[in-house]
Simulated assay, not measured.
Amino acid sequence: MNRLVLQAQILERAAIRYTPAGLPALDLMLRHESLVDEAGNRRKVSLEIKAVAIGDIVKRVQGLGLTESPVFTGFLSAQKQGRGTVFHITGLSD
């Protein structure tokens, strides 16, 4: 199963573009920070990840403020030419 649930803030938001199929697409950079338990210890986690929203979800993501920290859901895939990872956003909640 390939499913990611991530609470994050938007660091960067590009202009809307369109896929070859004519769907709107929005490229983003997300930042996540939290404390998690690992092997009985508290650990601070901080990461930045490239993300993309495609289709109907674009309007909802575009309407978010940069100070908001919604919960994004979706899946991971490789970038073109397999260099890095992209989080494909398919859902959004407060």
Rank of each mutant, 00 (worst) to 15 (best):
D37H: 14
A53W: 04
T73L: 02
L11T: 08
G82L: 03
L11M: 12
A39L: 10
G91H: 01
T85S: 12
F72C: 00
D56Q: 13
D56T: 12
I16V: 15
A78F: 10
L30V: 05
A21K: 14
P70R: 04
D37K: 11
A25D: 03
V36E: 14
L30N: 05
G74R: 03
P20K: 08
L47Y: 10
L66M: 08
G22N: 08
M1D: 11
M29H: 02
S46Q: 13
G63R: 05
A14Q: 11
R60Q: 12
I16D: 13
S77T: 12
L35I: 08
L66Q: 05
H32Q: 09
A15V: 05
Q7V: 11
V45P: 01
I57C: 11
R60D: 14
S77E: 14
Q9G: 13
I89C: 03
M1T: 11
M1I: 12
V71N: 11
T73E: 15
I54W: 00
D27Q: 14
V45G: 02
V45W: 02
L28G: 08
T67K: 09
V61W: 00
G84Y: 13
G63D: 10
P24S: 11
P70K: 06
L66H: 06
A39C: 10
E38R: 11
E33D: 12
V58E: 04
A53C: 06
P20A: 09
I57N: 09
T85E: 09
T19S: 14
V45L: 04
V36Y: 12
V45R: 02
G22V: 01
F87L: 03
K59G: 04
L28C: 06
E38I: 00
A25M: 15
P24I: 05
A15R: 11
A14G: 09
F87N: 03
S34V: 05
F75D: 07
E33M: 06
P24G: 13
K44S: 08
M29V: 05
L76N: 10
D27W: 08
V52N: 00
I10M: 01
P20Q: 07
I54R: 02
Y18E: 04
V71C: 10
P20E: 08
V86R: 14
V45F: 02
A25R: 06
N41M: 07
L92M: 10
D27C: 06
H32K: 03
L26R: 04
A21E: 09
I57V: 15
S34R: 09
E12D: 12
S69R: 12
N41R: 15
V86G: 07
F87Y: 09
L11E: 09
L11P: 03
T90M: 07
K50T: 02
L11Y: 08
L6D: 08
G40R: 07
F87E: 02
R3T: 08
R17P: 04
A14R: 14
A14M: 07
A8E: 01
Q62G: 03
G22A: 05
A53E: 02
T19I: 06
G84W: 13
K50S: 13
K59D: 06
R17F: 06
L92T: 07
L66K: 00
E12M: 11
I54A: 03
V86K: 13
L26H: 14
V86E: 15
I49F: 00
F75R: 06
A15G: 13
S34N: 13
L66W: 04
V36A: 15
R13Q: 13
R31F: 15
T73H: 14
E12R: 15
S69N: 13
F72P: 02
